[in-house]
Nucleic acid binder design. Structure first.
Lengths: 150, 150
DNA sequence: CATCGAGTTCAAATAAAAATGAACCGGAAA
DNA sequence: TTTCCGGTTCATTTTTATTTGAACTCGATG
């Protein structure tokens, strides 16, 4: 199930495998155990855990007297989704904002055959505005999604 | 910008190119013009347009006396996002619901070393419940996102 | 201070996804 | 009825993304 979800979100399947394993485990797992149970390379698990940590899907757990790192899943949906949006979508939206502000009508001077330049200019102005509106709304709505799930 | 967005959503770049071209065009475009301007194969454009139509990102326009199909972008963000969620995420969420209902505690009998079976059973029951909760909430929230953008 | 264990990095190999293009379909025009 | 046009399908090729694994870092341990 978690693998399918990562696929739907355009993420590598190993992320789904790792998260799923932790989700089904009654106790935190160490790096090495994840490698063995999933038959993945150390590299994949290392990178996978790093990503899962940055989006807040997985938490390190310290076990006193053991220098290995333990991991457990974060099972708070709000937090999880929030992390994903924050890491993957919000940066995009922001980059969008910057780029759309920078676009000028003059940049769109290419030929569209029979369409007179003034008519084209009008369409472009409208669409650029729309783009900025989108960016604003998306920026406002994304943070709300997490709260709706809470 | 549209290409970047499709990448962030895990969709092929050609979708972004096609949508972006239509977005920058002051008039509807025919299939052939899309192929030429983007230097894509007919196959790619055909499939790309099909997908864009199913999520409602693009609309066919009929021009009387011309048997070719014309396309224009749907610039209503609400509709666009709604289509994407409906086509890509909602089916996943539903499949999830079905699978999580079918899961039984007994399916999780494998060994976790020192963890006593009763303790494990307890964790699994909790987590399966959580999964069902997630599924319900996601089902409730997804349709609202479109409205928030409206 | 050499060695070991735990984990990271990154170039190379592999697997997966997307694009291509040739064969095809169906309707309109010749 | 045959040809042509506009478009679709799908096996193959190409591109891109992911995984691997060997070399490495870093701190603890003998």
């Amino acid at each position: 199930m978690f693998v399918q979800m990562t696929q739907a979100l355009g993420l590598p399947r190993s992320l789904g495998e790792i998260y799923g394993l932790l989700y089904a485990s009654p106790r935190p797992l160490v790096f090495q155990e994840i490698v063995e149970r999933l038959q993945l390379s150390k590299g994949s698990v290392s990178q996978g855990l790093r990503f899962l940590r940055t989006i807040g899907a997985v938490q390190p757990v310290v076990v006193p007297g053991d220098r290995r790192e333990y991991f457990e899943p974060v099972v708070d949906l709000r937090y999880l989704v929030g992390g994903f949006l924050r890491e993957r979508l919000t940066p995009q939206i922001e980059a969008w904002g910057i780029r759309s502000q920078a676009l000028r009508v003059e940049d769109f001077a290419q030929s569209w055959g029979d369409v007179p330049i003034e008519a084209y200019r009008k369409v472009i102005v409208e669409r650029l505005d729309k783009l900025k509106t989108w960016q604003r709304r998306a920026g406002a709505v994304l943070p709300m999604i997490g709260k709706l799930l809470g």
